[in-house]
């Protein structure tokens, strides 16, 4: 249990996907003008990253490794993720039209979100088991959601601020993200392993 908690809080706070691992910057900057859309994107990412972690882990351990096809990992994973996003989109559309309306437009964008492929590859390189991989996926996505929602809230206020003309838009967004990243560096001092009694 302790190890699971270490992975979860590590993924959300210490190794935040956006602010310390640089994964998923494009949607982070692109879909963060309003808190509402940012929340929608975050939810869609949590869903896809959780499912993708489990499926890619299974593909690696039940298909690629027994057949000795480790070098096909990149191609296999990206195809699995692309297919998965399509499938998830269709299933949600059928099962819950309300949820589809909320997430719909963000789902296709997720295929090119490098955080999804990133977490799939990290799960393999860190040698996680299936449960740990799933937790790592959900934790990474929760960290993404936390960062993008906070960032959107800051950006809503920033619309009213007098920003130098040359820094308007993208440069200011990057600098704001940098300041948030400094704040998140503070979490590095947490000794998660001692806190949750894992040695």
């Amino acid at each position: 249990m302790g190890e699971i908690l270490v992975i979860f809080f590590g993924g959300v706070l210490l190794n935040n996907f956006i602010l310390s691992r640089f994964l998923g910057i494009c949607p982070f900057i692109g879909v963060s003008k309003q808190v509402e859309t940012a929340t929608g994107m975050g939810m869609a990412v949590v869903f896809v990253m959780g499912v993708a972690s489990v499926v890619t882990w299974m593909v690696e351990h039940y298909i690629l490794m027994p057949l000795g096809l480790g070098y096909l990992r990149t191609i296999a994973f990206i195809l699995v993720i692309a297919a998965l996003v399509q499938l998830v989109e269709m299933v949600i559309q059928k099962v819950s039209p309300v949820l589809y309306k909320a997430l719909g437009i963000y789902l296709p964008l997720i295929t090119t979100n490098c955080a999804v492929l990133g977490v799939a590859i990290l799960n393999i390189t860190e040698k996680y088991n299936l449960l740990e991989a799933a937790v790592n996926g959900i934790a990474g996505a929760s960290g993404f959601t936390l960062a993008i929602v906070l960032f959107a809230a800051i950006r809503e206020r920033m619309d009213l601020a007098p920003i130098p003309e040359s820094l308007k838009g993208f440069p200011m967004a990057l600098i704001t993200a940098g300041l948030m990243s400094i704040a998140f560096l503070g979490f590095v001092g947490f000794r998660l392993k001692e806190l949750f009694g894992v040695m």
């Binding site: 640089f22 820094l167 200011m172 990057l174 940098g178 990243s181 560096l185």
Partner: peptide, 14 residues
């Protein structure tokens, strides 16, 4: 460190 990446790139584009 990661914050430096964001801020340096932001300032450079600015």
């Amino acid at each position: 460190l990661p914050p430096g990446g964001f801020i340096t790139l932001g300032l450079l584009i600015g």
